[in-house]
Design a binder for these strands. Sequence first.
DNA 1: AAGTAGTATGCTCATGTGAGCAAGTTGCTC
DNA 2: GAGCAACTTGCTCACATGAGCATACTACTT
Lengths: 314, 314
Amino acid sequence: MTELNIGPDELVRLAFVAHQHYIVGRTRIQIAQDLGLSRFKVGRMLDDAIAGGIVKFEISTPGPLDLGLSLKLKDRFGLKHALAVRTPTEAPETVQEHLGAVAAELLREIATDDDVIGLTAGRTLSAMAGALTTLPHCDVVQLAGVAGPIQETGVEVIRRVSSVASGRPWSIYAPLVVSDPRTAHAIRQQPDMQATFAQFARVTIALVAVGSWSPPDSQMYDNAAISPAQRSSLLEKGVRAEVCATLIDAQGSVVEDIEDSCIAIDTAALRRIPDVIAVAGGEHKTSAIRAALASGLVNSLITDSALAKRLIGE
Amino acid sequence: MTELNIGPDELVRLAFVAHQHYIVGRTRIQIAQDLGLSRFKVGRMLDDAIAGGIVKFEISTPGPLDLGLSLKLKDRFGLKHALAVRTPTEAPETVQEHLGAVAAELLREIATDDDVIGLTAGRTLSAMAGALTTLPHCDVVQLAGVAGPIQETGVEVIRRVSSVASGRPWSIYAPLVVSDPRTAHAIRQQPDMQATFAQFARVTIALVAVGSWSPPDSQMYDNAAISPAQRSSLLEKGVRAEVCATLIDAQGSVVEDIEDSCIAIDTAALRRIPDVIAVAGGEHKTSAIRAALASGLVNSLITDSALAKRLIGE
DNA sequence: AAGTAGTATGCTCATGTGAGCAAGTTGCTC
DNA sequence: GAGCAACTTGCTCACATGAGCATACTACTT
C-alpha cells in the first residue's frame, strides 16, 4: 500500500534529496530549507531512498583485495592481519605474483624504522621482493637456509629487500637441511651463522612461505638432504606443512624430527616474533595453510581469495 | 606523503569501518568503542574512506529514469514535473512504449480523487492508456477531436483511461480539424460537444501529445481537412509544434490561424489547466518540444533521455 | 641539540540527527 | 455524518556529529 504510491516523480525527488545529502554533502536541515520541508521529512525521504534502493552504499577496496573475505579470515582465525587477494586464476605463477605485490605493500605499510624484518625464501617471497619499492631503514634477517633455484633463495630475497630498505642484510650461506645433525651443528657454530642466528631475537616482522607436504609443494619436501625413508616417516607422522623449518601436522601440532638437521630459526624463536605473516596461496596449499594457522606459528596471512574461501568453508 | 602510507591493511580497516557505518548502520561512537578508538578517529577514517574511493554512494532510480537529466530539465525549463526516460533506441515505437509506461506511472502517482484528467490522442498517449492499471476515481475529458488511426484516437484513449479510473468519460465525437470555421462552429454547438467543452474548465491534469511540424510528425499536419496552401502558409508563419490544436512557432508564440476550424480546447482554457504534461519524444520531436516548452503551454514534460540531452544542449 | 613545520590526535562547543510521541489528515465502515 | 484505523507530519529531548582548536608527536633543518 505504501509502496504503490511511489511513482516516478517521488522517485526523482527522493533521488534528488539523496544526491544532495550523500554526494553534495549538504545536511538534512539545509536541504529541508531549500525545499521548504521539515528536516524530519527529509530524513524520512532519505530513509525511503535507502529502503527503496535508490541510494546504494558500495564498499570496495580499490585493487585486488577481497574485503569481505579478508575480514572473515581475520575473524575466523583470530589473525592480526588477513588479506584475501583476488587473482585472475589460481595458477601458481599468477597467485605468486599477486600475493607478492600485496605482501610488499603490506610490509611497506606496517614496517617502521624500529622493525627488523625476517624472511624466508620461495617464489612468492621472491615476487614480494621484486615488487618492493620503498621501505623504512630496517635490518633484514634470513630465517632459514638455502634451497631451491638461486633467484628464489633466501639469500637473494634478503639481498633485494635489504637493498630497498638500505638496512643491513643478515644472510645464511648454508643449506636449509643437511643430512645429519652433527653437520648442521657444525655449520651453526660458524661465526657468520652465529651472527645471523643472534639476530633472530630482534626480528619483529617475519614474512614466511608455507610449504605443503600433502600434496607436496615445498622447498623442504624434495630436498636432497632428506632421505626417502625420512620423508615417508614424516608423512606417516602426519606432516602437512612447513614454516621456516618447523614441520606441522593437520592439527597444527609441531612434528619434531629433523629440526636438528636444519639451519633455520627454531620453533620457539619463531613464536617469539610479534608478527609472523604467512604469504602463500594456490590450489595445493590449502591444507598446509590450514595447518599453519592451526599451529599458531603465524598470526597473519596473505593468500588468494579462492583459497580463503576454502579456508572459511564457503 | 599521506597517500603513500595507506597500505592494504589500513585499506581493510577503513573498509571495515565504512561497512559498519554505512551498511550495518552503527554510529561512529559504537564503532569507536568496538575498536578502542576515539569517535573522531572513526570519523576521519570514514572521511578517508570516502576520499579514497573505498565508499561510493550510488544514487540511481530503479527503472529507466535518468535522474540527472530529469533534474536538469526541471531546472532549466522551470517545470513542475520533468522525467527523462532512458530508452534502448530512439525508434518511435520504443520511445512511445517507454514514455507511455512512465506517463501512466506518473498519472497514477499524482492523480487524486479531486482531479479531472484531460487527454489528447496519439500513439504515445495510447501506449500510456495501455500501461495504466489503477487510477483514482476521476472524470476523463477529451481535449481535442479525432484524427489518426482508430486505436490512437482521443475517443479510444479516453475510453480506456476512464474505464481504469471508473470515472465518467467526456468524449469528442468529431474531427480534430474541419475544412472551414462555420462547420466547426456548427459542430461545437451540438449538445454533446457543449457538454464536453463545459468540462474543460474542470480539468486539473492534462496529458498532451506534442505534434511536430518541422519535421512533420503530427496528427494535424497531414490532416486532410487542411489544404496544401494552408499548410504552406502555416509553415511560412514558422509553426513548429502543435499542442492540442494550438500552433506554436520556434519562439514559443502561439500562431493564430486555423483555431476556428478546430474542435478542441482553446489556448486560453488550456493555459488555465494547472498541470499540463507533454508526453513526447523521439528523433523528430526535438524542435517541437522546445517550442512547446517555450510557449509555456505545458509545465511538465516526459521525454526520452536522448531528446532531453538535446534540449539542454549536451 | 634545539628549532620548526607538518601531521595526528582528542578536546569543547555548537550544530545536526534519530526515537518516540502527539496532533493532524485521510479514507474507510457503519 | 460519526467513529475509527492507518498514515503522515512536526515536535521534544537526548544523542551523534563536525568545526575548529590545543596538544603531542615526528621528521627534518640548522
